[in-house]
Amino acid sequence: MHATQMPTHDDPLDVETFARPEQQRRYTAAMHRIAAERRTGDPVRVYVSAAPKTTTDANWQRWLKRITEDLPDGVELLHYGSAFEGQPYAWEALVDQLDGLVVIGRPKRLGSRVHVLGPVARLELRSMVAQKPVLLFTHNLGLVPVIDCKSQVMAPSEAPRLKLIAPKRWSRDSATLQAALDALRPVDGNGQGPEAHRDTADHLVAPFIGRRAVS
Results as ranks from 00 to 15, higher is better:
205 V>W: 14
51 A>H: 14
7 P>D: 02
153 V>W: 10
108 K>D: 11
112 S>C: 03
20 R>Q: 09
133 P>D: 11
171 S>N: 13
21 P>R: 12
64 L>H: 02
179 A>K: 04
201 A>K: 11
2 H>R: 12
124 E>F: 07
193 G>E: 02
94 L>F: 04
153 V>K: 10
47 Y>T: 04
156 P>S: 06
47 Y>I: 13
9 H>D: 13
177 L>V: 07
214 V>W: 13
83 A>S: 15
208 F>C: 02
39 R>Q: 12
156 P>N: 07
62 R>K: 10
201 A>M: 04
76 E>S: 14
108 K>E: 13
51 A>R: 00
15 V>A: 04
17 T>D: 02
38 R>Y: 14
36 A>E: 11
30 A>Q: 06
159 A>C: 03
86 G>E: 07
187 V>R: 15
83 A>F: 04
162 L>Y: 14
123 L>I: 13
85 E>W: 02
134 V>N: 00
44 V>Y: 12
67 I>R: 09
23 Q>C: 11
126 R>L: 11
47 Y>R: 07
14 D>L: 10
170 W>C: 00
57 D>G: 05
161 R>Y: 05
104 I>E: 03
127 S>I: 07
120 V>H: 02
179 A>F: 08
127 S>N: 08
135 L>K: 12
41 G>I: 09
38 R>D: 02
115 H>M: 01
141 L>C: 11
41 G>F: 15
19 A>S: 10
90 A>D: 15
75 V>S: 12
45 R>V: 05
161 R>C: 04
50 A>K: 03
101 L>D: 03
33 R>I: 14
83 A>C: 10
119 P>C: 03
195 E>A: 11
192 Q>M: 10
115 H>L: 00
44 V>R: 06
22 E>L: 07
78 L>Y: 04
155 A>T: 11
55 T>K: 05
115 H>R: 14
98 L>D: 01
9 H>E: 04
101 L>N: 05
11 D>F: 03
43 P>E: 00
84 F>K: 03
133 P>Q: 12
108 K>R: 06
118 G>W: 00
205 V>R: 08
98 L>V: 10
181 L>R: 13
43 P>C: 03
185 R>V: 06
10 D>P: 04
101 L>M: 04
41 G>Q: 09
200 T>G: 12
42 D>M: 08
190 N>A: 06
99 D>M: 02
31 M>R: 12
176 T>P: 08
23 Q>R: 03
96 D>V: 11
149 C>A: 10
128 M>E: 08
89 Y>N: 08
120 V>W: 01
179 A>Y: 08
30 A>Y: 00
82 S>D: 07
77 L>F: 09
197 H>T: 14
51 A>D: 14
99 D>W: 03
7 P>M: 05
152 Q>G: 12
5 Q>R: 14
4 T>D: 15
28 T>K: 10
204 L>G: 05
32 H>S: 14
7 P>S: 00
